[in-house]
């Protein structure tokens, strides 16, 4: 199943009613330490947003505040127009949360569990959005059809993660949160998962906010990347724009008479033109590699950390005191 070609480019400004997540001045303080220190961002209907950042930057904390599972210290947060700290059951019905399961519901069969959890969403069904998702269709969408009658305890790690995703989307959410969704996926499952995410965003207009450590995945999935470091968002842009903004360099590789060459340059086009002018047809296996999202990300975080190193150390000393 491949529906990724249905994706439409998302550019330009978007109408305000399409805002599904709005975060302003979000702060989270644990004891004397500010984990989040003025986080600001928005997400729109049908948008896939990847939240990146070093370990301990507060990605999980941010997501849990948006899910309504954690109470923030300060700032304004709206998810589907509602403050998550005060969200009721009808608000909850419009959200999906993909949790990392461990061994819960081990005795349940896959189909039985999804049908049961889905039944809670039935009163919240609307004309545009029929809830819950049809159980067998949902099982097929996450690729568990063969295992539908298995007990959950008999699923492999990867199958279990697919079930987690199915549980997260069984209520046809308008906003879906995924914390490290593909940890433990094999490449095939990962590809299927990416197709599913695109389908949810494009066909069902679901806003998807995910955290990941896999930058390649963020690059493929996300319409927009947020980089969280030092308690605030230090970058907020499309993967392409981010790469363009940060990278001035590229790496050019080629072979000539069976010998391999690598050259780093700030102007790859001019360099390649010169290369052909000089060596003509003897140049083979030409490859120009622009900075990847990974390079961009590492550069961003490095730049941030070296710029704010003093502040980081100071706050650490204060915490230790």
């Amino acid at each position: 199943m491949s529906v990724s070609e249905l994706g439409t480019p998302r550019t330009g400004s978007r109408p305000h009613q399409d805002v599904t997540i709005e975060v302003r001045g979000l702060r989270m303080r644990y004891g004397p330490v500010d984990v989040l220190n003025g986080v600001e961002f928005r997400a729109y209907r049908g948008e896939v947003v990847a939240l990146l950042g070093p370990n301990g930057a507060g990605k999980t904390t941010t997501i849990e505040i948006l899910e309504g599972f954690r109470i923030r210290s300060a700032g304004e947060v709206r998810v589907l127009g509602v403050d998550p700290a005060r969200g009721g059951e009808s608000w909850r019905a419009r959200l999906g949360v993909v949790l990392q399961s461990w061994r819960d519901h081990g005795k349940w069969q896959v189909r039985e569990l999804l049908r049961h959890l889905g039944s809670f969403y039935a009163p919240y069904s609307t004309a545009e959005r029929g809830r819950p998702w049809d159980t067998d269709e949902l099982i097929a969408a996450v690729g568990l059809t063969e295992h539908a009658d298995k007990r959950v305890s008999r699923l492999s790690g990867g199958q279990r993660r697919r079930l987690d995703v199915a549980v997260g989307i069984v209520g046809k959410p308008e906003v879906l949160f995924l914390d490290e969704p593909t940890a433990g996926f094999d490449p095939h499952s990962r590809r299927d998962f990416h197709d599913l995410v695109h389908r949810l965003a494009d066909l069902d207009d679901t806003t998807i906010l995910l955290t990941t450590h896999d930058l390649d995945e963020a690059d493929k999935l996300a319409d927009r990347i947020l980089v969280l470091a030092g308690g605030s968002i230090i970058a907020d842009d499309s993967p392409d724009a981010l790469a363009r903004r940060m990278s001035t360099g590229a790496e050019v590789r080629w072979t000539r008479d069976g010998e391999r060459f690598v050259h780093s340059t700030t102007d790859a086009t001019a360099f390649v033109r010169g290369l052909f002018a000089e060596h003509g047809d003897t140049v083979a296996d030409l490859e120009v590699r622009r900075a990847s999202l990974e390079d961009t990300y590492l550069a961003l975080v490095h730049e941030f950390e070296s710029g704010h190193g003093d502040a980081v150390i100071r706050s650490f000393e204060e915490a230790a005191r």
């Binding site: 899910e67 599972f69 059951e89 009808s90 909850r92 019905a93 959200l95 949360v97 949790l99 990392q100 399961s101 461990w102 061994r103 819960d104 519901h105 959890l117 809670f120 969403y121 919240y124 549980v167 997260g168 209520g171």
Partner: peptide
């Protein structure tokens, strides 16, 4: 047991799940 293994958290993520 079910708080430790996440069953309760799943219930919490579903509308009316804790009551159920």
């Amino acid at each position: 047991v079910e708080r430790e293994d996440g069953t309760l958290l799943r219930a919490k993520a579903v509308p009316g799940g804790m009551l159920g």
